[in-house]
Design a protein around this nucleic acid. Sequence first.
DNA 1: GATGAATGAGTTTTCATTCAT
DNA 2: CATGAATGAAAACTCATTCAT
Lengths: 197, 197, 197, 197
Amino acid sequence: MPASEPLAPRPENRRQRVLEAAASRFLRHGYSAASMRDIAADAGMQVGSIYYHFPSKADLLTAVHQEGLRRIKTAVTEALSGRQDPWERLEWACITHMEVLLHGGDFFQTVMRELPRETDPDWKHLVALRDDYEAIFTGLLDALTLPADMDRRKVRLMLLGAMNYSPMWYRSGDDAPANIARNFIEVLRRGLEPGAP
Amino acid sequence: MPASEPLAPRPENRRQRVLEAAASRFLRHGYSAASMRDIAADAGMQVGSIYYHFPSKADLLTAVHQEGLRRIKTAVTEALSGRQDPWERLEWACITHMEVLLHGGDFFQTVMRELPRETDPDWKHLVALRDDYEAIFTGLLDALTLPADMDRRKVRLMLLGAMNYSPMWYRSGDDAPANIARNFIEVLRRGLEPGAP
Amino acid sequence: MPASEPLAPRPENRRQRVLEAAASRFLRHGYSAASMRDIAADAGMQVGSIYYHFPSKADLLTAVHQEGLRRIKTAVTEALSGRQDPWERLEWACITHMEVLLHGGDFFQTVMRELPRETDPDWKHLVALRDDYEAIFTGLLDALTLPADMDRRKVRLMLLGAMNYSPMWYRSGDDAPANIARNFIEVLRRGLEPGAP
Amino acid sequence: MPASEPLAPRPENRRQRVLEAAASRFLRHGYSAASMRDIAADAGMQVGSIYYHFPSKADLLTAVHQEGLRRIKTAVTEALSGRQDPWERLEWACITHMEVLLHGGDFFQTVMRELPRETDPDWKHLVALRDDYEAIFTGLLDALTLPADMDRRKVRLMLLGAMNYSPMWYRSGDDAPANIARNFIEVLRRGLEPGAP
DNA sequence: GATGAATGAGTTTTCATTCAT
DNA sequence: CATGAATGAAAACTCATTCAT
């Protein structure tokens, strides 16, 4: 036998290929409309082969969520490192959130689109994963100096909602994600009637 | 003869029963994970009977969207009638939007949760239906007096995103929908640092 | 109430409309691929209404066969009346058979195309109906003066097969059915090598 | 360990088993009255397993036609090889045609019984397959020396019709297929009145 | 006579999963 | 590691038929 086979699949990135195919299919078709066969085809293998890497379809979804949240957490944490000003920190968290969401591939978008449902097999786990990420924003808002009666939870959910809805309307010609994020923060901070009594 | 016969089908509301069952299942399981069998069971009839009222599952989804959007449009239009002040009008649109979304049953929530995908059977139609409703908000924002460089489209999408994300976190003990809406408007109008330079 | 209603269906020909629609659908789609709903639609009525005229789909098929065979028997019998010469009688039977088969509507063609199968509900009945018609040809062949060892049954089946296959290849530009029939008879009588030893 | 394991699927002939079961069911019940469930049962497997080998019921029909026509073409071609005399060649083609049709199993008979309809899924393809076979007969007739005004197409269709109708009346006690074929050729060649003026 | 509404058994097809090789 | 082959349950949908009105 010669030294190398023509199609030799580099050993470790086949799992990754499956994961990417799954994220893409979950995002475009939804979890249950995405079929293992199609995912396998996208990943360039047979259905049965997926099961060597992942024990079930539900585990694939979990892995996509984990990967998506791992990426966003890493990115946000890195963006915050070294920054002190509370408003600047919030702004950079949002900039990163928007950039990863809109230009960072299918993983994080799948997390935000294929939101867990109470009827999902792994519901509690997925919710816990996401809550863990969103806790970063709880901390960032707590660090702001705000009027005493301001409901910080509502503000956080308002901001996250505004951002997470963006893949629904964002098109390639739109303003850059970072600018959209800055706009949201600006509106949030000053309001629409900055000079009002 | 006893008071009621088993086969008397209370003629007209069976179609409505199907529609309600479908909205509920679509909301709780997602469109493709919801089975016609379960919808039929919820509606108290046989699977085949659904097809007398709706030609396909996709049409059922379309009908749910139509009904949800018909309801919210009616409610918002009515809430706006007689009001003149632009900010008051926007606030009432949001109050109504939140009340119908959070306390108005499954229809409108399904519209906002089961967002159309490009791969969906009736995608363009569903998007057009929702755009038609959201156009109300375009008008409301156009009526506001805002700084000249303010991007009203972004503001509209920010506000809608904040509201439409709410079913994801809203729990029964939370503040009333109307209050949440008022809070959103307040933040949007004044910002979080009302006295800032 | 005014003197006449706009849609008043002339009382007796609705049964006939059903029968014609059935023949057409049976012929073009085959018995089991033809649906009662489609037949009803072609006939301009609701499915349920068919059951006033015919107790079941199988009975519809039987009725189509009966009507088709009634028509061809009437036509052939009439064509033979007054003719004495055995070969002329056979020729006219064939001319009529071909004309009704190729230009006589869907009934007789359905009889010959949707041939009864042993698995059909009404198999024996349908076969008996057709045998009854084909018996005419047995008689016509018996009347011919032929070489003693000639197997008249085989000749009859050869001739009927040749004719009954014709709807499969006959197209509107082809020779007239009567001419095709005359050709068949000519070949049958003289052979392809008329002057051979 | 006992002699055979229940799950050992004798690897390659399962596809063939499906094909045979399909031919048999299509022949006895007709294409649309034959159910995949019954075909699977005849083949000794689950319905779903059929779809590993054939993508749809329509493809199964196509495969049956292909196999039937492949068989008859092979048989006829072989029967003609080495023969020169035009009439002898035609006779042997007919002998083979009749033998395969009446004693050659369900495949070719299905081709000739389950004649393609314009409404069939794969209509044009099936017609093309059969035309390809029947072209052999066009060639055989062209090779005969016949009166100048003889319409060879009509003669070909007369002969094919006579043969293809035979499964409808052939019963096990009948004359051997080869003899029936010889009879047809004899009648075709000499006619019924060989000594006539 | 006709129909609107419903039924239940049936259809083809899809799918996640398994497992011997 | 990967796959070819199979499975059985479930999917959406169709259909002949029924029956009260």
